[in-house]
Nucleic acid binder design. Sequence first.
DNA 1: CAGGCGTTGCTGGA
DNA 2: TCCAGCAACGCCTG
Length: 520
Amino acid sequence: MVQVSPLLHKIHLYPPYPTPRTSLASQRHPTRFFKATPLIFDDAMQLLLCLSKPAQHLKKNPLMAASGSGSIMWFRKGLRIHDNPALEYASKGSDFVYPVFVIDPHYMEPDPKAFSPGSKLAGLNRIRFLLESLVDLDTSLKKLGSRLLISKGEPGQVLIQCLKEWGVKKLCYEHDTDPYYQALDIKVKEYTSAAGIEVFSPVSHTLFNPADIIQRNGGKPPLTYQSFLKLAGQPSWLSSPLLTSISSLPPVGDVGSCEISEVPTIKDLGYGDIEQEWTPFRGGESEALKRLKESVSDKNWVANFEKPKGNPSLFVKPATTVLSPYLKFGCLSSRYFYQCLQDVYKNVQKHTSPPVSLAGQLLWRDFFYTVAFGTPNFDRMKGNKLCKQIPWNDDDELLAAWSEARTGYPWIDAIMVQLRTWGWMHHLARHSVACFLTRGDLFLHWERGRDVFERLLIDSDWAINNGNWLWLSCSSFFYQYNRIYSPISFGKKYDPNGNYIRHFLPVLKEMPRYAKGVHI
DNA sequence: CAGGCGTTGCTGGA
DNA sequence: TCCAGCAACGCCTG
């Protein structure tokens, strides 16, 4: 029978989880005219009349919402105002801008069958983080004279319905390389090209355009970080300052019969009253910029940032920025982050460099985005050309012991508790539990661990998550699976307080090893 | 097919 | 404490 490790309640005695850095880290679609046949003449007259009148009149006339020049700004990732070229283009020369976010029920609505509270695809912590980001975006848009329009349903269908209903001639959204969005974009573009709607889809989620890098490398993605750096060079946009603020936005036009709501709460989504310990990290662009400012203002820290080497106890110290969840949802622009870092580097005598520097971390992110984009079946072992084919163990109970923090190894269990409650861990902590699962005695499939991370992490990012699991399971990029193959090695060098001990075994010898199947 | 490269982790000496 | 050297592995190149 499955038992809860008696160690679980003791885990909280361990050095507490990391704290934030502050306290510590054209053509209009004709549908509307056909639908409203009696109004064709009126519409045309209104248009003629309005041409000679001030724009204010246009804005107040709901009929003109459809006939004026309107754009849809479709938010997916990129939940921000600063450095948002799609939003900038949508508002340029438009009388109306419809900022839309579509709630995909698969991603948001409760799934009682899931192994942790949340939807089919995401844990509750990340869903809440997303909702907070949407509320923040809505607030910012309202300050600029606009608002966020929330719609529900299959995103492709909903968007096409909006395009029809509002008769806009421009659709703008941030380009996305994830397969989910690639498939969605194909569907939407089929419609827009048939309907003669202009689509503007700039690359602004990453520093570089993955397609460019792949092309420069002869059609294949670079497979080492160093070769990626050589191909990438300096980002082209760095020579001119990014647009980081907007003074106002065109108003939202008439939404017609489209069902629009405010940003829902967790309760609205059908989760009822949830009693759980929530992640301490608040979603949204405002919070992201606040954190960024705090991190970047410490020039010494930025200049000397180095991925902490060796000692995992460092993850209780102010070792990172905790900006990853904000980068994931695009609450923070990676390009703006990079620009801020370059500004600091310019003004100091000496600074660290990639791969260990802070800028190097952003480049790692781009590296994984590029490889992931250029590799079919990147998220699977089978059919993935990069992935070493390994006959992994398949054992649901061992997997459950790992994901439910019942392995019996306090260090591993503490990290898994942290993942479940906070949805975020230091990269060294991720490294430890990933190696434990795939390269330790469990020898379980990296796809299983990936699934758990993807669900529970608030910053889980398709390309980066899969890339790291490929790496740490020695399936790709790195292949020394004889390294750290046994959990004992986690105790060899460090005692429970994280102190370095070269030859350390006794404590771990006394640890119950639930993971070996005794108590499972 | 050999040898160099990129990579991580351990060791031993300064 | 820090750093160079080495081991070990698969990929890339000539």
